[in-house]
Simulated scan of single mutants.
Amino acid sequence: MRPDLLPDQQWKLMLGSFIHEFSRLEAHVFILCARSIGTDDTRKLTFGKRLDRIKASLKQQSPANSEGMLGLLREARGLAEFRNGLLHNTAFHGMGGSAPQMEEMEARLQQLELLLDALALA
C-alpha cells in the first residue's frame, strides 16, 4: 500500500493493477489455447472455456508432463472467479454488502503475479 494516497485512491490503484495483471493472464491463456485449436476458434470462447480446452489437451499427455500446468490452470480459474465477483459485485458499486478488503486485494494481486511468473516458465 502507498501511505501517500487516500484510501479511495489506494483502492483504485490496487483495482487497476489487478485488472491490468489479469489482462496479461487472459492474453497468456489465449495464446495457449490458440496453439491447440487455432486463433479463430479461440476468439469465440470465454476465458473459462479456453481453460477447459487447454486442460483437455493437457490431459491427453502423461500426468508427469501435465500436472504442474493443470494446477496453474486451476489457480487461474480461481482468480477469474475472484475477478468476476470483484467487478460484478453490487457492493463495489455502493449497493450494500462488502467489497474485498485492501489486504485481500494485495494478496490476490501477488498471487496473480506469481501465477504469471510460473506460467512464463512452464
Rank of each mutant, 00 (worst) to 15 (best):
G85S: 11
E75Q: 07
G71M: 08
E67M: 06
Q101W: 10
G78E: 15
G68K: 07
L87D: 02
F82S: 01
G96R: 02
L72I: 11
M95H: 15
G94V: 03
F82M: 08
N84P: 03
P100R: 12
Q61V: 10
L70G: 03
P63W: 02
R77Q: 11
M95G: 06
T90S: 14
N89L: 10
E75L: 03
A80H: 13
G85Y: 06
E106S: 01
G96E: 02
R83A: 04
A76P: 00
S66N: 14
L70K: 11
R74N: 12
G71A: 05
P100V: 09
P100N: 13
E103H: 13
A99C: 07
H88T: 05
L70P: 03
L70A: 05
E67Q: 13
E75W: 01
E106I: 09
G97A: 04
R74L: 09
N65Y: 04
L86M: 10
G94C: 05
P100I: 02
E75C: 07
M102F: 00
E67A: 05
G68L: 05
R74A: 11
L87G: 06
P63Y: 02
H93S: 14
L79T: 07
N84Y: 05
G94P: 00
Q60P: 00
A64H: 00
N84S: 10
P63F: 07
G71E: 09
T90K: 14
E103W: 05
A91H: 12
H88N: 01
A99N: 13
S62R: 14
M69N: 00
Q101P: 03
F82C: 05
Q101C: 06
R77H: 04
L70I: 13
N65S: 08
G71F: 04
N65I: 01
P63G: 05
M105V: 14
E103N: 09
G71P: 06
H88M: 02
E75V: 09
N65G: 08
A91G: 06
G71Q: 14
E67P: 00
P100C: 09
G97C: 08
G78P: 01
E104G: 07
L86A: 06
M102Y: 04
G78T: 07
G96W: 12
A80M: 13
G94E: 03
S66T: 12
A91F: 08
E106W: 04
M69F: 02
A99T: 15
G78F: 08
F82H: 02
E103V: 12
M95S: 11
L72A: 04
A64L: 09
N65W: 08
E106M: 03
E67N: 01
G97S: 10
E75H: 04
T90H: 11
G78R: 13
R77Y: 13
P100T: 15
